[in-house]
Computed example of a mutant assay.
Amino acid sequence: MSLKLDALDIRILDALQDDVTTPIAEIAERVASSKTVVWRRVQRLTERGAIRARVALLDHREVGLGIMVFASVKMGRHGVDVLPQFIDAVRACPQVIECHTLMGPVDFLLKILVADINEYENFVWQKLSRIDGVQEVHSSISMSQPVYTTRLAPRPTNSDDTPGGD
């Protein structure tokens, strides 16, 4: 069940998405609320999972990871242990920054960052293709990333716009 969000929650989340290092007092002023209320709301949003982490977003190219690859992985079998074992295996690979379970002709879509094509080739041959159950891997290399954002546009979930709790 999703967390009930009101207009104040949305304004607080919007401010945090601009810069998570913004002091609570500044956010409170920006959203026209008190520091105590904003602090409590941030704590509740964090405890309930709406705020998953407070991180720095890095530019992958600037930190030496110049190649972004989307790998579609088809599994040869779908036993009760095969899919969870695959997920555990790719979690252990620092090159894999996202893993999506899909419906359709492939089972997983991986977003992978590597320094160069040689590193990706080695990753496929030495790690990905050796995971139990992997039948096919189809790779697409990203040439550019004209749209990139981590910003979400949450919607209020309270029909009467009452506070989500202080």
Rank of each mutant, 00 (worst) to 15 (best):
S2K: 15
L8S: 11
L8Y: 10
D9Y: 04
D9G: 07
R11E: 08
R11S: 14
L13E: 05
A15M: 12
D18E: 05
V20K: 13
V20M: 11
R30V: 02
A32C: 02
S34E: 00
S34L: 07
K35G: 10
V37P: 00
W39N: 04
Q43D: 02
L45N: 01
T46K: 09
E47M: 08
A50V: 12
I51Y: 04
R52W: 04
A53L: 07
A53P: 11
V55L: 14
D59V: 00
H60E: 14
H60F: 09
G64R: 01
A71P: 03
V73H: 04
H78A: 05
Q85L: 03
Q85S: 13
I87G: 10
D88Y: 02
V90I: 08
P94I: 01
Q95G: 02
V96I: 15
E98W: 07
L102G: 11
V106C: 10
V106W: 13
V106F: 15
L109Y: 10
L110A: 13
L113N: 12
L113H: 14
D116H: 09
E121K: 04
F123L: 14
V124Q: 08
W125Y: 08
K127R: 12
S129A: 04
S129G: 01
I131C: 07
Q135W: 12
S139I: 09
S139N: 10
S139W: 06
S140Y: 04
S144A: 14
Y148T: 12
L152C: 10
A153M: 00
P156T: 05
T157L: 03
N158S: 09
T162Q: 09
P163I: 03
G164R: 05
D166R: 15
